[in-house]
């Protein structure tokens, strides 16, 4: 009973509606940002959308994270989001992908090789 209490409390933090997605899927992450710097009291809140391919999921429980990669103006950009962060306003799945491995780190190399040509 005592052993499960910490799991119970963790479950409570995980009560959020998150669509199911897997590495290979293309998703749009709506992230809440405070303008005027980190922790600014007066700052306005706005939402920034980050769209890209999920290349990796890591961690477990409330500490689960996922990595989204996109190519922005020819430069590869990756962002790691904590899955249960309240800063994530919404996640949309744009396209289901078919990944044959759990971590699509080969996309980085592929992009480099494409650039070299």
């Amino acid at each position: 009973m005592k052993g499960n209490l910490i799991r119970e409390i963790e479950q409570e933090l995980m009560q959020r509606e998150i669509p199911e997605f897997r590495p290979g899927d293309t998703i749009r992450v709506h992230e809440r940002l405070l303008e005027g710097g980190e922790g600014a009291k007066e700052g306005k809140e706005r939402i920034q959308v980050f769209e890209g391919i999920v290349i990796k999921c890591a961690g477990s429980g409330v500490n689960k994270t996922f990595t989204v990669r996109k190519v922005s103006y020819g430069i590869g950009v990756e962002k790691i989001f904590p899955l249960y962060s309240p800063r994530i306003a919404k996640i949309e799945v744009v396209e289901r992908g078919r990944a044959r491995r759990a971590r699509l780190t080969y996309l980085r190399r592929q992009a480099l090789e494409a650039n070299a040509k």
Partner: peptide, 21 residues
């Protein structure tokens, strides 16, 4: 002490937290 978890505060910051029984 029961263990540690990640705790998200009102601002959305991820904090290291200890759960005590």
């Amino acid at each position: 002490k029961l263990g540690m978890i990640t705790w998200f505060d009102a601002e959305g910051k991820a904090l290291a937290a200890t759960v005590l029984y």
